[in-house]
Simulated assay, not measured.
Amino acid sequence: MKVEVQFRNLPGTEAAVGWAGGHTIVADRPIGKAGGLGIGLNGAQMLALAIGGCFCNDLRYTAEELGVALGEISIDVTLSLEGTPLVATLAQMNVTCSTLDGTDASGVIERARSTCMVSNSLARGLPVEISMSA
């Protein structure tokens, strides 16, 4: 199984638009940083969103497998960055989740933790290969 996304220059800016299927996202830098206009997310924000978004989805997958109806889901991700070059050194995720019948959702959360593709991939050290063409 493979997932492919593309990024291309966003005409009239120094930002990039990325897409996967029919979904799009804009990548940019803050205003005044390397031509950034602040019209999109930076890499750290996209990484934190990937971590939290994947976990949201895995909570739903897990709940469906267990036959549990979820109520409110709240996920906050804090990504710590340091060094030169800047790298992510820690992702902290706070998960709050309720069930519609009021039972404890901790089992759903724990099972989702064990199956979450993004956080498990990062924890195992995902290699990134970069090829070039001019």
Rank of each mutant, 00 (worst) to 15 (best):
T78V: 15
G52L: 05
L126D: 06
L41Q: 11
R60P: 00
R60S: 15
T115S: 15
I39V: 14
A50Y: 07
G67S: 04
G71T: 02
G18Y: 05
I75H: 06
T115Y: 11
S121W: 01
V68W: 00
A112V: 09
D58I: 10
R113E: 14
E82L: 05
I25C: 10
G38C: 08
G40R: 01
G125M: 06
G35F: 09
E110V: 06
A34Y: 15
A48P: 05
N57G: 15
G38Q: 06
A44G: 15
E129L: 13
G21Y: 09
P85A: 12
A16F: 12
F55T: 09
G67N: 06
L66A: 14
T84M: 09
R124S: 08
A48V: 07
D104L: 00
G36P: 07
I51G: 09
E110C: 03
L47Q: 02
P30Y: 03
E72F: 02
M117Y: 13
Q45L: 07
L70A: 08
L126N: 08
C54F: 08
D104R: 01
V17R: 03
T103D: 03
V68Y: 00
N57Q: 14
L59N: 01
E82Y: 00
G40M: 00
A69Y: 02
P30L: 00
A91S: 10
M117G: 12
M46Q: 12
I51H: 10
G36W: 08
D104E: 07
A134S: 10
R60C: 11
G18N: 01
A91M: 01
W19N: 12
P85M: 10
L49I: 15
L37H: 09
G21D: 03
L100H: 06
H23K: 11
Y61H: 10
S80G: 07
C116H: 01
V68R: 00
A112L: 07
S114A: 15
I109G: 01
R124K: 15
Q92N: 14
V87M: 12
E65I: 09
P127D: 00
I39N: 02
G36A: 05
A16D: 06
G83I: 10
D28K: 03
F55W: 04
I31Y: 07
A69R: 13
H23P: 02
N120M: 11
D58E: 13
T99M: 04
P127V: 01
G125W: 08
A123E: 14
G71K: 00
A50Q: 08
M132R: 12
S98T: 15
N120S: 10
R113N: 15
I31D: 04
P127M: 03
S131V: 12
S121Y: 04
G21K: 11
L70G: 06
L122V: 12
A44L: 09
V128L: 11
G18R: 02
G35M: 11
A63V: 06
R29N: 14
E64Y: 08
R111K: 15
A50V: 07
L81D: 03
P30T: 00
A123N: 13
G22Q: 13
D104Q: 04
T103M: 07
V68I: 14
G38H: 03
G107R: 10
L41K: 14
G40H: 07
G35L: 11
L66C: 02
L70D: 06
N42M: 07
L81Q: 08
